[in-house]
Design a protein around this nucleic acid. Structure first.
Lengths: 139, 139
DNA sequence: CGGCATCCATTCCGATACTG
DNA sequence: CAGTATCGGAATGGATGCCG
């Protein structure tokens, strides 16, 4: 058999757990920003820009639960809550950023393949005018 | 240690695109198995074991669209369709497996953090009997 | 064998309103 | 400021049936 290939069985459960956490809509954004240092709730809210406070709370709770961020409350008036990556979170950041770097490097290749595929699909169903907006199927 | 930090702005769109593709329920499984060599449709179906043919089709189409796998049809009787990773797909496999390796290595730490968190949550809302099944909230 | 189409359950996520 | 609670729409994913 092949030299590489680690057993694709129960390990994938763990891999999928991590990827599901990391692959959702906001986690990477939040973790990436927190990679620059501790931040407060509304500071994150403004920075991520587009996230609802519900999803920010949900995302942060999930990350806290899995031990990737700490939540520190300063009982002042007004209250102050800071979120910061744990060691585990910073370690996670390494492979995540590797994947991120890959994504940035190969974004164009993916887009090109996507356009090629969509053009080919449009050609069979619409032989007379396959000209489609390239961004229609992307989102 | 934090001399890194690449700009967390538009790059994250691409990162999130890749992570959303890779973070769904089946993609990593399928790509991992295809990393061992070309496979037929029902061969994949049997191997992944648990996937519906709808999701297998959807997953493979998405991967094909983004240029990660090729789909080769042999017009025999019965028809034979083989899926294989492209160069792009094999390159993607590298950072994905790095993340996978991290997930396997640190799975226990995540679980421990999760149990700690859940125990702490149960303690405040249920002061008399915080004993909960450790797997109830995991899935 | 390798699909696609349809229906249905679940989950995700955003908008809004309210609380300490 | 930092949340919680609730609603509804959108997206995801499974089961089933049909087709070349």
């Amino acid at each position: 058999m092949k030299p590489d290939h680690f057993h694709v069985t129960s390990e994938c459960t763990m891999v999928n757990e991590i990827l599901s956490r990391v692959g959702d809509k906001w986690t990477v954004l939040v973790v990436s920003y927190l990679g620059n240092g501790a931040m407060r709730f509304n500071e994150l809210r403004r920075t991520v820009s587009g996230i609802s406070q519900k999803m920010l709370t949900t995302t942060l709770r999930g990350l806290e639960r899995d031990g990737f961020v700490t939540r520190t409350i300063f009982p002042t008036i007004p209250p102050r809550v800071e979120y910061e990556l744990t060691d585990l979170g910073r370690e996670l950041l390494v492979p995540v950023r590797a994947l991120g770097a890959w994504a940035v490097s190969n974004h164009d290749r993916v887009l090109a393949a996507r356009n090629r595929f969509d053009a080919a699909q449009g050609a069979v169903s619409e032989p007379f005018g396959p000209e489609r907006n390239l961004s229609e199927a992307a989102e």
